[in-house]
Design a protein around this nucleic acid. Structure first.
Lengths: 133, 133, 133, 133
DNA sequence: GTGGTCTAGACCACG
DNA sequence: GTGGTCTAGACCACC
């Protein structure tokens, strides 16, 4: 599994793990029904303490995305895809809402805000297109 | 001064104070000549530890927005308006950038992202117009 | 033999096997003369590790419900029916006791508790009648 | 705060803490708005590792019952009472449902089941009355 | 082998 | 002082 952990980030490690898995499942990089790497395995791979991975897995379990299969490891549930897409939508929309609300509330002109958004959109979609080639 | 502190927010209280002041100066809700309330006064008003207000003021001073006026308290500098508008722009653009980057990186279709942004924009600009009446 | 294993349940798989066999013997779905499937056979059928089935059988043997029949596999003992009914009673009464104790201890009104029980009773007995038709 | 931890129980310590707090809030032994003992304090009181208490508090926070008040400790939210009563109802009803379902499914006569329930009800309500005197 | 729980002790930012 | 995160290492039951 390909996860990039930045121990320096503001986002705690266990949340980085959670949200990267959610995003990869949402994007169907990881398929429903797959068995995830074991806690100890992933911990070794990410150079992170097993407890940290366990915490991430547990949270995903609580959200109905992972299910522990006794003695075999943790696997994606059948609703994993659906739930992850929901979570992704929720997370992104919430953050958009916050910025927009704060920006307008701060007296910023809506047109200026729109211009900035356009700006960022084109910058990053350009970058994404590059990576896909 | 009208500041709304949410003690349970992720954003630390002292940062809430900073950014709300910055935004109000940027929006010219607070005018250039204004004298800010004293640390103790504001702390009492916000039900917050004076140290916390002190930290916010100190940071604003460091950024050249506030300046001590001998024996009278803290006042806005001449460049306050300009600096606050810069800071506001920086903060908002940065957050937009983050969301956009993360969203596209997560495999979300750019069109969907745009739709969501439109959605939030119209929701909040509607609300803001209402409040202005 | 019809057993439904849920690998994600809190109840360990080997206990699921035990209690389902006990219940089926108690309900005389499995008759006294019956020969149980071999460990490997049942394991294959349930998609479960043979060790797990072995552990269940072993426990049932220890409780005098199963007995090895020379070269033929495992069969029910003569007291199997009686013992299973005892075990069923014990298990169910114990669990009822726990819930009731906890509920009353938590300050819940006895009348509310009774209402809830009535509710669940009617719901499930309705369902059970349906299935029997 | 009066919590009784049984380290020997099947129920993990952190869950004992959670559910006892939930029950006490539901029963209004603890009132809305109250500030709970700090993690370290409660940990010392219960002779338990602070991490364990932290885990319990965190779960309660996730469920909207507790809210961290920066630098001041954890306090009950306004909806705490409501949520705890919901959780209590959910927990108890779920467990009743399980037992009833399992019992009927195991071929037990509904009348026998009812008799057993009556039995346990009278036993425990007797005991509860005693304690109240 | 697997996950789950717990302890001990460290470090950090915040108030 | 508070909570939040992380590490290290232990023990357990289950498969």
């Amino acid at each position: 599994m390909l996860l990039r952990i930045r121990p320096e980030s503001d986002e705690p490690i266990y949340e980085q793990i959670i949200h990267q898995i959610v995003f990869q499942v949402a994007a169907q990089v990881i398929d429903n029904g797959t068995l995830l790497p074991s806690i100890r395995e992933l911990a070794k791979e990410l150079l992170v303490n097993p407890n940290t991975v366990a915490r991430a897995y547990q949270e995903l379990e609580r959200q109905g995305i992972l299910a522990a299969r006794r003695g075999m490891g943790m696997g994606l549930t059948e609703e994993a895809g659906k739930r992850c897409r929901e979570l992704r939508a929720q997370r992104i929309r919430e953050r958009i809402g916050q910025v927009v609300k704060e920006a307008l509330h701060s007296g910023l002109e809506p047109d200026v805000l729109k211009a900035w958004i356009e700006d960022e959109l084109s910058r990053h979609s350009a970058r994404t297109r590059k990576e896909k080639r």
